[in-house]
Computed example of a mutant assay.
Amino acid sequence: MRQGVRLAVDVGTVRIGVARCDPNGILASPLETVKRGKGDLDRLAELVAEHEAIEVVVGLPTSLSGREGPAAEAAREFAGRLAGRLAPEVVRLYDERLTTVTAESGLRAGGVHGQARRKVVDQAAAAVLLQAALDGERLTGRPPGEIVRGSS
């Protein structure tokens, strides 16, 4: 297992959930919600620098059958722009099936409802995504997902 903090981003049309893991890559936790739009890449770059992240995992939304639709295309485009902004840091796409559903049910079970849940669900989804990527890396011995080449 590689050492170093990793960040994960769950990219939505309005908000971007951000999570981070500990330097040993064991446990993911919610970090922040970034407003989507002007300045979002700048804020993510600030978070990468602030946490000295060795890579960023971007959620790739696919259908249960594994097919990619418009949301996956948008995530790939965003990941490409992020990779171009962060180079030489590594950006990876990782399958995020059911992360938001898992995050929603966990928050509901924890008694977080309504407006409070909407404020943190994106962060929680990013934490679920990152935890899945970390667990997958631990099981296979290989870095998670696919590397993204930067675009402008």
Rank of each mutant, 00 (worst) to 15 (best):
Q3R: 14
G4P: 07
G4D: 10
V5W: 07
V5H: 10
V5C: 09
V5Q: 08
R6P: 01
L7V: 11
L7Y: 08
A8C: 11
D10L: 12
V11R: 01
V11K: 01
V11C: 05
G12C: 05
G12T: 03
G12H: 03
T13Y: 03
R15M: 08
R15S: 06
R15F: 06
V18N: 02
C21P: 04
C21Q: 04
D22S: 06
P23A: 08
N24P: 00
G25F: 04
G25P: 03
G25S: 11
L27H: 11
S29F: 04
S29A: 15
P30S: 11
K35L: 14
G37Q: 09
K38F: 00
K38S: 10
G39N: 11
G39I: 10
D42C: 03
R43W: 06
L44Q: 07
L44W: 04
A45M: 02
A45C: 13
L47D: 08
L47S: 09
V48A: 10
A49Q: 13
I54G: 14
I54L: 09
E55S: 13
V56D: 04
V56K: 04
V56W: 04
T62L: 15
T62R: 15
T62I: 13
L64G: 07
S65A: 15
R67G: 12
R67P: 00
R67M: 10
P70V: 12
P70E: 15
A72F: 08
E73H: 13
A74R: 14
A75M: 04
A75Y: 05
G80K: 02
G80E: 03
G80A: 06
R81F: 01
R81M: 04
R81D: 00
R81P: 00
L82S: 06
A83W: 06
A83F: 02
G84S: 05
G84K: 02
G84D: 05
R85G: 01
R85Y: 01
A87K: 11
A87S: 15
P88V: 04
V90H: 01
V91T: 05
R92Q: 09
R92L: 01
Y94K: 09
E96Y: 05
R97H: 04
L98K: 05
T99Q: 06
T102W: 02
T102D: 13
A103L: 09
A103F: 03
E104D: 15
S105Q: 15
G106F: 00
G106N: 13
L107I: 07
R108A: 06
R108H: 12
G111K: 11
G111P: 08
V112M: 08
Q115S: 15
R118D: 14
K119R: 14
V120A: 01
V121E: 00
D122A: 14
Q123E: 12
V128C: 10
L129Q: 02
L129E: 04
L130C: 09
Q131M: 12
A132M: 12
A133L: 04
L134A: 08
E137N: 10
R138G: 07
T140H: 10
T140M: 04
R142E: 15
R142G: 04
P144Q: 06
P144H: 14
P144F: 05
I147Q: 13
R149F: 08
R149D: 03
R149Y: 08
S152I: 05
